[in-house]
Design a protein around this nucleic acid. Structure first.
Length: 430
RNA sequence: UCCUCGGUAGCUCAGUGGUAGAGCGGUCGGCUGUUAACCGAUUGGUCGGGGGUUCGAAUCCCUCCCGAGGAGCCA
C-alpha cells in the first residue's frame, strides 16, 4: 500500500493509495457519498459507493463529521468533474478521530468569530493560500539577499532603549531593569555593515502604538537590509530591484494560491522597473493641484498616500522629505539641508507604505547634534556613535513590512490574514 | 485616544412598544454523481451586563463591557 499526498495524486492515476487527512465537507445520496478530504498538501474528493465498500467503511462515512481525521484507501481516477482533475474511488475508509461539532461551517462567518477561532480558521482554503504566499514571500526575500552575498544579522528583540524614540514601545522587566521589545533592527544593523558590508535582518518587530486599522499589527515582521558605501540613489535602485524580483518570484511560485485568493495578478505583473519617483515637494504640489488642503512640511495621511499611489500602476517612490518630520539619523540632502535623504515606497491599489528607508548620517558631529536636537539620551547612543568614530562610512538601508507586502500580493484588505496569529489592539487570543 | 456602526439560537441575520423568528449547523429519516448538494422532520434563546421608563421592553432612556470599521501614528 502506497501512502500518498494529495498534491502528488495525479502521478498515481490507476494506482491504489492511502491518504490521511481531515474531512472538509461531505455530501451523500443514500447509497453514494462524496467526502472532501484535506491532507495539508491539497484537497481531493473521495467517492464512496455503498456497493463497493464493506459495512465498516460505510459506517465510517456516517461517522465522519466535518474535520474528523480519516484514512482512505482508494484507486486514483482521473475525472473531469473533480477540481484538481483526480478523485479517489474508495475501497476502504476509517475514522481515526471523530471531530466534535466544528464551529466554522461552510456558511459565512463574521470576522470577530473567525479571529476567536484563528487556530481553526487556518484550515480554511483562503487562509491556507494567504499563509502560503507569506511563506513563499519570506523565502523569496531571504533568497534575494543571500544570492547577493548579504549576511544575515539577527538583531536583538530585547533592547535597552528606544531605537527611534518616537513610537511607543512594549516594556518588559529585564532582571530589575526596564527593557523594550525591538521596533526596528536597523541601529544594530549599521555596526554590522562595517563588519560584513552588506547585511540584513528579518524578524519580528513590536509597536505598542494603539493603532486600530487594517494596516497595523502590534507584532509584525520586517526585513531590513543595510549596505556600506551605498548612497541614496543606490538605495532607491536596491529597493526597486528587490521589490521587482520578489514580486516576480511570488507570482511565479504562488499562482495556485493567488487564484484561490482571486487576486488580479495582471496588476502585479506590471510591477517592473523603473518605478515612478517623485520628491516630497513634488508630491505636495501634485496634491495641492488636486485641491487637497496640505502644506509643505505636513505628513501625508492615508488618504493622500492612496491618492498619490493611485496615479500609478507601479509602486511609487517618494524621496527627500523635510528633515523635521523624519528620524534623527537621516542624512541631509547636500543640495538642501532642510531635506532628509529618506525614501518611502507606496504600493499601488491602496496598500500603503510598504518600504521606508534612508541614507544614514555618517558624520559623527552631525549625528551627535541630531541626538541632542531630538532630546534623545546621549549615553544610550554611544555605541551607535562609535560607528562614526571608528572609520565612518556612508551607508543606507530600508525596512519592508512583510505583512503589508503579503497583503498587497494576496489582495487582502486586512493585515490580520497575512500572519498566522495576528497580535492586534486588544486581541492577543489565541 | 477620538469618531461611526454593531452585540438576538453554535454561526449569519430579521424582528424598532404587545405570544422571540429564518437560513445554515447539529440530530433523525429519504435519495447511487454530489459541487455552499437536495427533500422532510426535529433540536436549539439569561435578546451582551446592570439600572431606569412603561400595564407591558429585544425594541425607548442611562451606564458599563465587548466587537467591527475608520482617524492619528507607522511598516
Amino acid at each position: 500500500m502506497t501512502d500518498a499526498t494529495i498534491r502528488e495524486l495525479s502521478r498515481h492515476v490507476g494506482e491504489t493509495v492511502r491518504l490521511r487527512g481531515w474531512v472538509e465537507n461531505k455530501r451523500s445520496s443514500g447509497k453514494i457519498a462524496f467526502l472532501q478530504i484535506r491532507d495539508g498538501s491539497g484537497v481531493v474528493q473521495a467517492v464512496v459507493s455503498r456497493a463497493e465498500v464493506d459495512d465498516a467503511s460505510w459506517e465510517a462515512v456516517a461517522a465522519a463529521s466535518q474535520e474528523s481525521t480519516v484514512h482512505v484507501v482508494g484507486a486514483v481516477k482521473e475525472d473531469r468533474r473533480a477540481p484538481g482533475g483526480v478523485e479517489l474511488v474508495t475501497e476502504s475508509l476509517g475514522v481515526d478521530a471523530v471531530s466534535e461539532e466544528y464551529p466554522i461551517t461552510p456558511k459565512e462567518h463574521g470576522v470577530a468569530f473567525l479571529m476567536e477561532h484563528r487556530h481553526l480558521w487556518l484550515r480554511s482554503s483562503r487562509q491556507r493560500a494567504a499563509l502560503k504566499v507569506r511563506s513563499e514571500a519570506v523565502r523569496a526575500i531571504r533568497d534575494y539577499f543571500h544570492d547577493r552575498e548579504f549576511v544575515l544579522i539577527d538583531s536583538p528583540i530585547l533592547t535597552p532603549a528606544a531605537c527611534e524614540g518616537t513610537s511607543t514601545l512594549f516594556e518588559t522587566d529585564y532582571f530589575g531593569e526596564p527593557a523594550f521589545l525591538s521596533q526596528s533592527g536597523q541601529l544594530y544593523l549599521e555596526p554590522a555593515a562595517a563588519a560584513f558590508g552588506k547585511v540584513f535582518c528579518f524578524g519580528p518587530t513590536f509597536r505598542a502604538e494603539k493603532s486600530k486599522t487594517r494596516r497595523h499589527l502590534m507584532e509584525f515582521w520586517m526585513v531590513e537590509p543595510e549596505v556600506a558605501f551605498l548612497e541614496f540613489d543606490g538605495l532607491c535602485e536596491l529597493a526597486e530591484d528587490f521589490l521587482t524580483r520578489v514580486v516576480a518570484r511570488v507570482l511565479d511560485r504562488c499562482a495556485e494560491d493567488l487564484k484561490v485568493l482571486e487576486r488580479d495578478t495582471s496588476a502585479l505583473e506590471k510591477v517592473v522597473g523603473p518605478f515612478p519617483r517623485i520628491t516630497y515637494t513634488e508630491a505636495i504640489e501634485a496634491l495641492r493641484e488636486k485641491g487637497v488642503d496640505i502644506e509643505w512640511g505636513d505628513d501625508f495621511g492615508a488618504d493622500e498616500e492612496t491618492q498619490l499611489a493611485s496615479l500609478h500602476d507601479r509602486p511609487l517612490m517618494i524621496t527627500r522629505f523635510p528633515a523635521s518630520m523624519k528620524a534623527f539619523y537621516m542624512e541631509p540632502d547636500a543640495e538642501d539641508p532642510k531635506l532628509a535623504l529618506g525614501l518611502d515606497v507606496i504600493a499601488p491599489e491602496g496598500y500603503g507604505e510598504i518600504i521606508g528607508g534612508s541614507q544614514r548620517i555618517h558624520d559623527p558631529e552631525l549625528l551627535e547634534r541630531r541626538i541632542r536636537e531630538h532630546e534623545l539620551p546621549a549615553e544610550a547612543f554611544q555605541w551607535y556613535l562609535d560607528i562614526r568614530r571608528y572609520g565612518t562610512f556612508p551607508h543606507s538601508g530600508f525596512g519592508m513590512g512583510l505583512e503589508r507586502f503579503v497583503a498587497w500580493m494576496s489582495g487582502l484588505a486586512h493585515l490580520r490574514e497575512t500572519i498566522p496569529y495576528p497580535r492586534m489592539l486588544y486581541r492577543i487570543y489565541p
